[in-house]
């Protein structure tokens, strides 16, 4: 009994700091977002007294469905493209000889660690009306001198893919590195085509990495704000831009909260699924180890 309570005390002692820190600075603030979504705004940029459903009704503003739809399609398309690129890349890096693999991995990791404002800005320089790419395209007669490469939804899509692709490649690589490639050879020996061996053996084998990659792109893409802000125009705003605009320009915090609450709910679904998946995994492994002893 005393050892049990001592154990409990020890657990509480090492869990406490992070538990309370995240309770105060993560859980409570998130709840506050939901609460303030039901508060009226004051004309001076503050939060009014009492409770109202008015802010939520404001979300029916005719602009919003278009912005929400754009946010969803940009996130979905960028996720699909990132996965289509990440799977062959992850495979290629995992199967490369050791020295080449180290170089390739370094080349993928450097953009991953590079400041993301700079990576976005690099595209602005590249696509700038007087920039080199535009000049080259005009020179090759591939685009007209007055076409704009910047400030449209496709530029936003391109830069979202550029920004989050390393986040997709790394988990796919991690899974592909552990994959047992003799399984593919076995499938081929048994008469499976290259494509069939790939879809029926390799893809299921690295599914965990693909799933992580999917979340690593889709969720941050839903919350994009800087990318459309810098390379997008008025016709390529996403939910994140509206949240920032309501916060910093109009100073209507209840409205910004209502939008944030909406985004939080959208993110919650995939988040919960991963959490359950992730937490279950180590428990199963642990039980397996225990049974073996």
């Amino acid at each position: 009994m005393t050892t049990l309570s001592k154990k409990k005390k020890h657990e509480g002692l090492i869990t406490g700091p992070s538990f309370f820190w995240l309770l105060i600075f993560f859980i409570i603030p998130t709840l506050i977002v939901f609460a303030i979504a039901f508060k009226p705004a004051t004309p001076f940029g503050g939060i009014g007294e009492g409770w109202t459903l008015g802010t939520l009704f404001d979300l029916r503003n005719p602009n919003y469905p278009a912005i929400i739809w754009r946010t969803v399609w940009l996130s979905l398309v960028s996720t699909v493209v990132c996965l289509l690129l990440a799977v062959p890349c992850g495979y290629c890096i995992a199967r490369a000889p050791k020295r080449l693999r180290d170089v390739l991995l370094l080349l993928v990791i450097v953009p991953f660690w590079t400041n993301f404002l700079i990576r976005i800005f690099a595209w602005k320089v590249l696509l700038h009306p007087e920039g080199m790419l535009k000049q080259a395209l005009v020179f090759l007669h591939l685009c007209s001198p007055d076409a704009t490469l910047l400030y449209n939804p496709f530029t936003v899509l391109l830069v979202i893919i550029y920004t989050y692709l390393p986040f997709a490649i790394l988990p796919v690589y991690a899974a592909a590195e552990k994959f047992d490639y003799s399984l593919i050879e076995a499938a081929r020996d048994l008469g499976a085509s290259q494509f069939r061996a790939f879809t029926r053996i390799f893809l299921p084998g690295i599914s965990r990495g693909v799933w992580t990659a999917l979340l690593m792109v889709f969720i941050p893409a839903l919350g994009s704000y800087v990318i459309p802000d810098i390379v997008g125009g008025p016709g390529s705003e996403m939910i994140g831009n509206k949240i920032a605009q309501r916060t910093f320009v109009d100073r209507n915090l209840p409205h910004a909260s209502a939008l944030s609450a909406l985004l939080t709910l959208a993110v919650m679904v995939p988040l919960m699924i991963t959490l359950v998946n992730h937490y279950r995994q180590p428990v199963v492994q642990r039980k397996g180890k225990g049974a073996a002893q």
């Binding site: 600075f25 603030p29 998130t30 977002v33 993110v267 959490l275």
Partner: peptide
């Protein structure tokens, strides 16, 4: 519960974390 609390900030988009902390 602790694991959920540790894991969630890794996934939640930055803008939501910034917004909620600002309101806090």
């Amino acid at each position: 519960v602790h694991y959920g609390m540790i894991y969630s900030p890794l996934i939640v988009p930055d803008i939501l974390m910034g917004m909620s902390l600002l309101l806090f």
